[in-house]
Amino acid sequence: MWETFGFEFVNFYLIPGLVLGCIYALGAIGITLTFSILRFANFAHGEVMMIGGYFTWTAMVLSNDLFGIPLHPIIAAIPAVMLAIALFILVDRYFYKPFRSAPAIRVVMASFGMMLVIRSFVQAVWGPNQLTFVPGIAKPNELVKNLTASVDMMILVPNKHFWIIAGTIVIMLALSWLLTKTKIGKGMRAVSDSPELAKVSGIDVEVIVKATWCVGGFCAVAAGVFLAMDLQMLETTMGFRMLLPMFAAAILGGIGRPFGAVVGGLVIGLAEELSVYPWLGDGSLISPGYKTGVAFTIMVIMLVVRPSGLFKGRLF
């Protein structure tokens, strides 16, 4: 039935790949920043994404039930971001800070434990069932569909995907400004390059650490909310399932390179979706059951050929 559209590649492979890539990219930013500034792989990152989605859902439900105002997820995400940042900073203060000078493996294990704690907490509070984020199915935007159909390039994109792609671009621009133009952003880059040099030049490393959690928490909640908008539901392992591709994106882009993480996220997202396109003949290039393998093959090849990643990240 697709011959009638003649535009299936863009609609069913490219745009979904971009949407997935945007979500990976936002998650990978937080991972790459923590990795380079705090020197450890934060396994709890996916769970903060997930709990951000649950906070947002709660804000939407409360607003609807108490005041009768249905909130758009992006507005409901504002209190969720604050809660998630508070959570990140509290966890850092009581669970990660005591290990700051210990070998990295201890704090990695602490973050692994934190991941299980947060997930169990969510299961205890909100229950193990899936929650409906937005019911129903998202039909393609009619205006864009008709407009593009008139020039024989019918593009089928539901509104939620416009929000996700536009939201990611806005966050990217804001992050770029923060990192290059503000004092705190420059401090973050300095600590990432060399914590000792940063310290002797008068930068308060603990302030930078807090700023890192703020940026990481913001991006994590954005990724979690976008993921929930795309899936239209919440479940307690949704963040964990994104964690490995996000690590792959961070490594691909180069550790400590936020824009590398974005490129890495887009590459991983697009590679997953495009690898099942019927490039040769009728059948999909590889069985869809193996598409995750594609993302990790790219990561492994990258680690072998160019361990510092696409954008010359830090080596550990």
């Binding site: 039935m1 697709w2 299936e8 979904p16 790949g17 949704m238 495009l274 099942v276 019927p278 598409k291």
Partner: peptide
């Protein structure tokens, strides 16, 4: 998170 590519391929 997404099965669009799968359903598009099978839906043909």
């Amino acid at each position: 998170a997404s099965y669009r590519a799968e359903v598009a391929t099978m839906g043909a």
